[in-house]
Design a protein around this nucleic acid. Structure first.
Length: 501
RNA sequence: GAGGGUGUAGCUCAGCCGGUAGAGCAGCGGCCUUUUAAGCCGUUGGUCGUGGGUUCGAUUCCCGCCACCCUCACCA
């Protein structure tokens, strides 16, 4: 990558280096220190009447260049938009025009001059002063656009996914929509933070490096601390530490941060991903359902200004209230089978009848979960809370107040996809210890994702944790939904990839 | 991890049944002081992902490897 050998430098780069030398010879610094830009392209374009004939100064990257001998048109792009500039020998003078002739697409320049409209009607800065700020040495993909019968036609789009992800900086320069997605991502996170702060919850930070991992069923990344000579895990969830803070007396804490899971990569999974976890004392999962509805709709309003979104062609209405259906009722609705209270053998038979494959060592909860994900999940396009899961699937959730075989847990589904997980938190340390022990038994039996007994977490619970509602939400998936992105890699700047060579 | 697909110039692509490569844009040279996929004339550029094999000869056929994409499995 950066260690390219001289013979790898193509002739375009050679030509640019040659120009760079010529610019330097003319005593012009091709990599300047600053520029007093006073305007953004978008402001000029949007409020042309206020800017017409007024002097502006704008800085940006040359994205298109049409030379005509002693004059030229170019488009420069700043963080806000692209705007046309008109550079004329008579306007900028001999010396500056000589420099201008050495510029290329990709160079970053600052221009000053009055704003006008060309004969063709395009808002344009008529340049009187032009300064090279940064010379480009590597050719940029040239994307051209044309209006045809009102439609925008794009030529030679920079579309190779691999290059786009590896060289996201180029993707961002050349593909404007990409930038829009990431702007929305930033807004989603800030709207979320705003919402949680307004509720009075405290944003906290807990360890990423953990001696014992927990809080989710997943395989961890391991690492090693040299000075302590100890094995450490990258966290798979924040849960156990945040609950310790509830024990410590906080009423509500949340954390927005990266979790790491050592599992497969696909359209909806990246090894590191952004998670929001929230724990609120004295509340239960009903409270949390209301909060999720309210928070997601508030974010949508804030970022998109609407409750009605389209995801991959599906019309989705986020307007509350969202449907609330028990896991068993949902299965019944889509398979016609009532599986509540069924024995393991009966569940296995049901799965077989539904053509859902199971493994011999699976328990009833796992079979139910499998039937649900194969037969129900995809149908949950409109926002739906699936509530009340079998106890064995949720070792950290509190037993249902009306049915000890269930836990008070829900997962919100939108567009057939799980976007979060929440429960009334288990705060009975004796029950928690038993659940951990059952997990450890699974681990012994070879279940790599079974959870590990955390003695310190149990100690914390023994001091007493108030009734608490907890929530985890996949931020990347929420962003995918709100930006109509088909792949998680489209909402992560630098998705995990194998190295280039 | 399994199956399928893709990999040719800086970008986007063409290259039929094997004869060592083409286009547009970008680049370079020339003309051009309101163009907008600017235009016109000329021109450079490729160890055809990589390593083997078959063949007189491979971008093209076969095999291994690498990367990416899709589907499935695991999961959020």
């Amino acid at each position: 990558m950066s260690e390219e050998k001289p013979q790898d430098i193509n002739q375009v780069m050679k030509a640019r280096l040659e120009k760079l030398a010529q610019i330097t010879e003319k005593n012009v610094n091709p990599f300047t220190y600053n520029y007093d830009r006073e305007h953004f392209a978008s402001d000029i374009l949007e409020q042309f009447d206020q800017y017409e004939n007024k002097e502006v100064s704008v800085a940006g990257r040359i994205m298109a260049l049409r030379r005509m001998g002693k004059a030229a048109f170019a488009h420069i792009m700043d963080s806000s938009a692209r705007i046309q500039i008109y550079v004329r020998l008579d306007d900028v003078g001999e010396a500056e025009y000589e420099i201008f002739k050495l510029l290329d697409i990709g160079d970053i320049i600052g221009v000053k001059g009055p704003v006008l409209k060309t004969h063709a009607g395009e808002i344009t800065i008529k340049v009187t002063q032009l300064e090279l700020l940064t010379k480009n040495l590597r050719p940029l993909p040239i994307v051209k656009e044309k209006e045809e019968e009102g439609k925008k036609v794009t030529y030679d789009a920079f579309s190779d996914t691999e290059s786009r992800y590896r060289q996201r900086y180029v993707d961002l320069i050349v593909n404007r929509e990409v930038n829009t997605v990431f702007m929305k991502r930033a807004k989603v996170i800030s709207a979320m933070r705003q919402y949680l702060d307004d509720k009075g919850f405290l944003e906290v930070e807990t360890p990423v490096l953990q001696p014992i991992y927990g809080g989710a069923t997943a395989r961890p990344f391991t690492t090693h601390h040299n000075a302590l000579d100890m094995k450490l895990y990258m966290r798979i969830a924040d849960e156990l530490y945040l609950k310790r803070l509830i024990v410590g007396g906080y009423d509500g804490v949340y954390e927005i941060s990266k979790d790491f899971r050592n599992e497969g990569i696909d359209r909806t999974h990246n090894p590191e991903f952004t998670m929001m976890e929230l724990y609120v004392a004295y509340k239960d999962y009903y409270y949390m359902m209301d909060l999720v509805e309210d928070m997601v709709t508030s974010i949508a309003k804030n970022v998109l200004g609407t409750m009605k979104i389209t995801y991959q062609g599906q019309e989705i209405d986020l307007t509350p209230p969202w449907k609330r259906v028990s896991l068993y009722d949902a299965i019944k609705e889509y398979t016609g089978m009532d599986l509540y209270g069924k024995s393991l053998e009966e569940l296995k038979a049901a799965a077989k009848q539904l053509n859902v494959e199971t493994e011999d060592f699976w328990g009833g909860g796992k079979i139910l979960d499998e039937i649900f994900s194969e037969k129900v999940e995809e149908h949950l396009v409109q926002p739906t809370f699936i509530i009340d899961y079998p106890v064995e699937l949720s070792p950290l959730a509190k037993k249902h107040r009306k049915d000890p075989r269930l836990v008070e847990r829900f997962e919100p589904f939108i567009a057939g996809r799980e976007i979060g997980n929440s429960f009334s938190e288990l705060n009975d340390p004796l029950d928690q210890r038993e659940r951990f022990e059952r997990q450890m038994a699974l681990k012994e039996a070879g279940d790599e994702e079974a959870q590990i007994l955390d003695e310190d977490f149990l100690r914390a619970l023994e001091y007493g944790m108030p009734p608490t509602a907890g929530l985890g939400m996949g931020v990347d998936r929420l962003v995918m939904l709100l930006t109509d992105s088909p792949s998680i890699r489209d909402v992560i700047f630098f998705p995990t990839m194998r190295p280039e060579n």
